Amino acid sequence: MDISWAHTGTSVIASFLASLVECVEALTVVLAVGSVRGWRSALIGCATAIAVLLVIIAALGTVLTHIPLRIIQLVVGTLLLLFGLRWLRKAILRSAGLIPLHDEQAAFAKNTELMRYFGTGHTTWDKIAFAATFHITMLEGTEVVFIVIAIGAGRTGALLPASLGAVAALLVVIALGFILHRPLARVPENTFKFIVGVLLSAFGTFWVGEGMHLAWPAADWSILALIASYLAIALLMVPLCRSRSQAVTSNT
């Protein structure tokens, strides 16, 4: 089955934005570790984790070709829907002011202080720097791998657009990290998470429907309708959550 522009475009955008958020969070830790303990071991740890993640993507992509497509769509769609709704719920609560926004500057300061607690890295090979950057890159990268596989697994040939979106996000963050040498605090992370939550929820719903043999009106173009529906509901939930929170506060 050919992939439409509606599917390809949304796949690239969803993968790019989701990967961008995760890469920004990983970059904050890598910058903190490198600035305190030195860049050599920190960058090697980060690069090693990226290599491992690429191997995982290649291996999973091969395995998925041996599983019936309908099963993949149903299982992956369910997981993607749950994952997207979790992102969207947190983004709504942040937009409503019920939970604090993620602060990259504060995260950078916290990780810098932690690295200083272990001392500064003066040796050629710093195990702490390597372990710290490897761990954070694997942690954030695992979510990227899941999103790429989940978005790309539902259609033959869809894994490439999803992978390109993730790679583009990685290259953008790496370039900005080298140029700025400081956390990307001005990136509207919650806005990205809001959009990604909407996109992933829409993709998850679409794949669940495909796995259950539902005939979507207008085929892949139904993804755009699902995106619009989730976005409208989420935007309505923000003032509703804010007003309910204010009502509870006033009553107490």
Rank of each mutant, 00 (worst) to 15 (best):
D2L: 12
I3D: 07
S4G: 06
W5M: 12
T8I: 10
T8W: 12
S11Q: 06
V12D: 05
S15M: 05
F16S: 00
L17C: 05
L20T: 04
T28F: 07
L31D: 14
G34H: 02
S35K: 15
R37A: 08
R37N: 07
G38Q: 07
G38W: 08
R40Q: 12
A42C: 04
I44C: 12
I44A: 14
I44K: 14
I50E: 13
L54I: 05
I57T: 06
G61A: 00
V63L: 08
V63W: 01
I67C: 01
Q73C: 00
V75Q: 13
V75K: 06
G77W: 08
L80P: 10
L82N: 15
L85M: 11
R86V: 15
W87L: 09
L93G: 09
G97N: 04
P100L: 02
E104L: 02
Q105S: 09
A106H: 12
A106L: 10
T112I: 04
E113D: 06
R116T: 07
G119P: 06
G119R: 06
H122V: 15
T123D: 15
T123I: 13
T124L: 15
W125E: 11
D126Q: 01
A131H: 07
A132E: 12
A132G: 10
T137L: 06
E140L: 00
E140D: 01
G141R: 03
V144Y: 02
A150W: 03
I151Q: 10
A153S: 07
A158I: 02
A166P: 10
A166E: 13
V172Q: 12
A175L: 09
L180M: 14
H181W: 11
R182N: 14
P188Y: 00
N190F: 00
F194C: 01
I195D: 03
V196T: 04
G197Q: 01
V198E: 06
L200Y: 02
L200K: 03
A202T: 02
A202D: 09
G204K: 06
T205F: 11
T205Q: 09
T205R: 07
V208R: 08
G209Q: 13
G211P: 03
W221L: 09
I223S: 03
S229F: 12
Y230R: 04
L235M: 08
L236M: 10
M237G: 04
P239A: 05
L240K: 07
C241A: 14
R242G: 02
R244D: 09
S245H: 08
V248Q: 11
S250M: 11
T252I: 10
